[in-house]
Design a protein around this nucleic acid. Sequence first.
DNA 1: GTTTCACCATAACGACCGTTACAGTAGGCC
DNA 2: GGCCTACTGTAACGGTCGTTATGGTGAAAC
Lengths: 197, 197
Amino acid sequence: MPPPTASRPARDRLLTAAGALFYESGIAATGVDAVLARAGVSPATMYAHFAGKDGLVAAYLEDRHTTWRQTWDAVLAERTDAVDRLLSVFDAVDRFRGEQGNRRGCAFLAAATELPPGHPGRRWLDADSELLTARLRELAADTGLPDPDDAAATLLLLYDGALSRLARAATTPALPGDDPVTRARRLAAAWVAAHRG
Amino acid sequence: MPPPTASRPARDRLLTAAGALFYESGIAATGVDAVLARAGVSPATMYAHFAGKDGLVAAYLEDRHTTWRQTWDAVLAERTDAVDRLLSVFDAVDRFRGEQGNRRGCAFLAAATELPPGHPGRRWLDADSELLTARLRELAADTGLPDPDDAAATLLLLYDGALSRLARAATTPALPGDDPVTRARRLAAAWVAAHRG
DNA sequence: GTTTCACCATAACGACCGTTACAGTAGGCC
DNA sequence: GGCCTACTGTAACGGTCGTTATGGTGAAAC
C-alpha cells in the first residue's frame, strides 16, 4: 500500500502512460522521455516516485499482475461448477482483454523475453507463473481429476498457446482459425471431459 | 545467393556469433561490439558484408528459418503415415533443439516481440508463420481430416504453446509437468485421433 | 615483385538515453 | 502573511551504441 498522503495524480498518470507505452511499443523500445511526455510529468517527479526506469517497469508489471488477479477473482466468484471454475482462466483472459485494450497478447510473455536476468520486474513474472500453476492445480483437484499436476500442465500449455498466438496475430495479420482464446478453452473443456473419472 | 567468390570465413563467423548471442541474450540487448568480439571480426568487415545491425539480424533470422525448414524436411522425409507426417512438427522441434542448443524456445517468437514494425527481419517471421500454416493445412488435408483449416489452427495453438512454455522455463525454473513439446505432441495426437473421419 | 583483395586494429564521431541538477511556481495549512 | 509540499521546465552530464574513417597486415594472383 502506498504512503497514506501520497500524491495520486502524478504517480497514477505515470503508471497509466507507462502501461500503455510499454505494452504497445515494448519496454526497451520506449524511452523515459516518451512516458514523461505522455504523462505530462517532469523527470524529477518521476525519479521521486520510482527507482529509475527499472522501478517504473517493475511497478507497471506489478499493476498488471494485480489487475489480472482481480479480474480472475471476479470471474471465479461467479462460477460454482467445478469444471467452469477450472476453465475460468480463459474467461478471465477474455474479460481482461476486454477491459484493457489487449491486442498484443500477454504482457508478461513479452516482458519475459525483454527483461535481463537480474531485473526487479522479474519478480512479478514469477508471481504470475506461480499464481497460474497453483490455482490451476487446486481447481483441477476440486474437479476430481486424477492427476492435478498433469491437468495444470495441460491447461498451462493451452493458456500459453492462446496468448502466444494472440501476440503473433498482432503483427502478422490474416492467421487462420477463430479466436485463440476460445479455441484453447474448447480444447481444454474437451480434455477435462475426457479425463474426468 | 551470395556472390560466387564471396569470402566465407568472416561472414560465417559473424553469422555464427550473432546466432548464439542474439538467441541467448536477446537481439536488442546484445550490441554489435559483442558480436564482433566473439566472431573476431573488425567493424569495417562486418559493414562490408551486412547492411548494419539490422541487416545482420535479418541474415540471422533467415539462417534460422532455412535451418528449421531443412530440419523439418528431413524429418518429413522419414515419415510415410499421414498422421505421423502431420505430427512431425513436434519431432522436428525436438531434433532442431537437439542440433542447436535451443533452451530458450522459439527464436522467432522472441524476435516477434523485439523487432519494430518496419524491421527487415520481420520478413522471415512472416515466412515462418506462412510455412507453418501452409504445411500443416496441407498435411491435415492428407490425413483426411474434415476441416484442414481447423486442424491447422489447433496444431498451431499447441505448437506455439509448447515453444512459449519452453521460453518461460528458461528463466523461471521448476515448472510443473514434463517436456512441453512431448506433451503438445501427445495432445495433438489425441485430437487428431478424435477428429478423424 | 608488385598488385590486389579480404581482412584487422584502433579511434573517433554523432546520436540517443537514463539520470541528475537547478531554478521556479501553484496550492494547501498554520 | 509565511511555510511546506508537490510539482514543472529546461538544461546538462555520462555512458552506451551504431556507424564510419584511417592505417596497416598477410597472402594469393599474375
